[in-house]
Simulated scan of single mutants.
Amino acid sequence: MKISQVIENKKDYLDLLLLADEQESMIDRYLERGEMFVLTDGDKTVAVCVVTNEGEGVYEIKNIATAPLFQRKGHGKRLIDFLCQHYKKNGHTMLVGTGDSPLSIPFYEHCGFTYSHRIPDFFTKNYDHPIIEDGKLLTDMVYLRKPL
């Protein structure tokens, strides 16, 4: 397994990015200003992540997705652990925003994140269709934080 940064042709990973953020116009808001990393196994892309610099030592995971065949095997956590170490030299906090979902919140908590705040109605105001995860309609964006 290898983790490397993607500098060009980030849209080549759009299918994977859409697993975590299902509206391309929302991905376009952060893709070019963010730094993208991929976890690969040989020639197979296992996971992808986009991180933005929010200023004053704060970084934010905007998108993290693991290919379906590789999910629930620790690859997402491995990528997050790598990114926290990578950004530790220039920052003090890693944020992640997600829906209030029984799938994603426990994953981030397992990675060491704790609740920070929420943005009410984020998904209903910013997406052109309802976002449903594990049978639950997502409305608020829940932010979690992890000290670096």
Rank of each mutant, 00 (worst) to 15 (best):
I3T: 03
Y59A: 14
L148M: 03
G91F: 02
L138D: 10
I3H: 03
F82H: 13
S104Y: 13
G99P: 02
I131Y: 12
C49S: 04
I27L: 12
N126C: 01
G34V: 04
T40N: 12
G99Y: 04
Y108T: 06
L83Y: 03
D81A: 08
L144P: 00
E35S: 05
F122G: 05
M94K: 04
S25G: 06
E32M: 09
V142L: 10
G99Q: 10
K2F: 04
M26W: 14
P120R: 15
Q71F: 02
P102D: 12
K73H: 13
D134T: 06
E54D: 07
L138F: 06
L31K: 07
P102N: 09
G99F: 11
R33T: 13
T98D: 01
R33W: 12
I105T: 04
S101R: 13
E60V: 02
K10L: 09
G34Y: 07
E54M: 15
I7R: 08
A47N: 00
C84Y: 02
H129S: 07
K146T: 02
D134G: 09
I27Q: 06
G135P: 05
H75F: 14
Y143P: 03
Y143D: 02
K11W: 14
M94R: 07
G74C: 05
D128E: 13
E56V: 15
I119K: 08
H110M: 12
S25V: 14
E8S: 12
F37T: 06
I27V: 14
H92G: 13
E35W: 09
Y143G: 00
Y30W: 08
R29W: 08
R118V: 05
G135V: 06
H117V: 06
K10M: 01
N90A: 11
R29N: 11
V96P: 00
K136S: 15
L83P: 04
S116A: 12
Q5S: 01
S104R: 12
D28Y: 15
L95Y: 10
A47C: 05
G57P: 02
F37H: 14
D128R: 10
N63R: 00
H117M: 15
Y115R: 11
L83H: 05
R145F: 01
M26Y: 15
H75S: 04
L14E: 06
L17C: 09
Q71A: 01
R145P: 07
M36C: 00
G76T: 02
L148E: 01
L144W: 09
H129Q: 14
H129K: 15
D140L: 13
D21G: 09
T114Y: 13
L18H: 01
E133N: 01
L18S: 07
S104I: 14
G91V: 05
E24W: 10
